[in-house]
């Protein structure tokens, strides 16, 4: 079923920051098909509405994990859900991070803000198969230390380079300060044999992709996760168009060779 949501129960909630929560969900009966890293579900808050949310971890079994940031009516409703509450789920939708194409390559996983959420399943997949890939670098930017997601997990991603940088440090912050691209000079990768997975605000992704290509990474190996208004997720509502792409179908993960000419046209 792709149009009517399936009921899922919140079995765990973990507050990541003051406005972001990770919900673990289990189906009441029928479960959605398996998700791949980078794909998304439509999450329905009863009577309020539906939003696309990427899968932020892919545990074994039927459990779904999604990280939601309260920014609008629907996401606020999801954010308030307690353990035992019910949501409606549709999916999986969209393209996934192309890890098959990245095999043997050095990997740059570059996240801005909540962009780390769709990338976490890709990091998990790479760590589960350490010999399938070259060097893994995880670079994440956040607004402030209080806005950092999955902070406890960063040490487990250090293989060989994993760093968080913030725009606005507090007095206790001893980590990096600045935009995420400033970390690229220190990452361990051979540009010609590198795949980059990038997710964050569009301006951040454009700046990051330009920098990577300038350093010699092939544009088609810079994978970005794009976002547009989305209503149906099944390719019928027309909202998620970006030029020739229907992002619910042809995205969200798109190679920068395809994305660049579209993102460079204002208001496309």
């Amino acid at each position: 079923m792709t149009l009517a949501p399936l009921p899922y129960r919140v079995v765990d909630r973990r507050d990541e920051t003051h406005d972001t929560v990770t919900l673990s969900l289990e189906p009441a009966g029928e479960a959605l098909g398996p998700f791949a890293p980078g794909q998304f579900a439509m999450m329905y808050a009863f009577g309020v509405g539906e939003v696309p949310v990427s899968v932020s971890r892919i545990p074994d079994g039927q459990r779904l994990t999604h990280t939601v940031r309260a920014v609008g009516a629907v996401t606020r409703a999801l954010w308030t859900l307690r353990t035992g509450a019910w949501v409606g789920m549709r999916g999986p939708f969209g393209t996934c991070w192309d890890l098959a194409a990245a095999r043997g390559n050095d990997l740059l996983v570059i996240a801005g803000g909540i962009g780390i959420a769709p990338l976490r399943p890709a990091i998990d997949a790479v760590l589960a198969e350490p010999h399938g890939y070259g060097r893994l670098n995880v670079l994440a930017g956040a607004r402030s230390p209080a806005d950092l997601l999955y902070r406890n997990e960063f040490p487990t991603w250090e293989r060989p380079f994993s760093t968080v940088t913030v725009d606005r440090p507090d007095d206790d912050w001893t980590g990096r300060v600045g935009v995420v691209t400033t970390l690229l000079g220190e990452a361990h990768f051979t540009p010609a044999d590198t795949t980059a997975l990038v997710c964050g605000p569009e301006v951040m992704m454009r700046a990051t992709a330009r920098d990577l290509i300038h350093r010699g990474v092939r544009p088609d190996r810079v994978q970005v996760s794009l976002e547009r208004n989305m209503r149906c997720a099944t390719g019928h509502c027309g909202h998620c168009q970006l030029g020739p792409l229907l992002l619910c179908r042809d995205g969200p993960v798109v190679g920068y060779d395809r994305a660049e000419p579209l993102l460079s046209v204002r208001e496309l």
């Binding site: 949501p5 009921p7 009441a28 009863f46 035992g84 509450a85 019910w86 409606g88």
Partner: peptide, 17 residues
């Protein structure tokens, strides 16, 4: 109309296409 949903007294959600 695409579907209807009920929230039962015990909170359980059921969706009818």
């Amino acid at each position: 109309r695409q579907w209807s949903a009920e929230r039962r007294p015990d909170g359980v959600l059921s969706v009818r296409p």
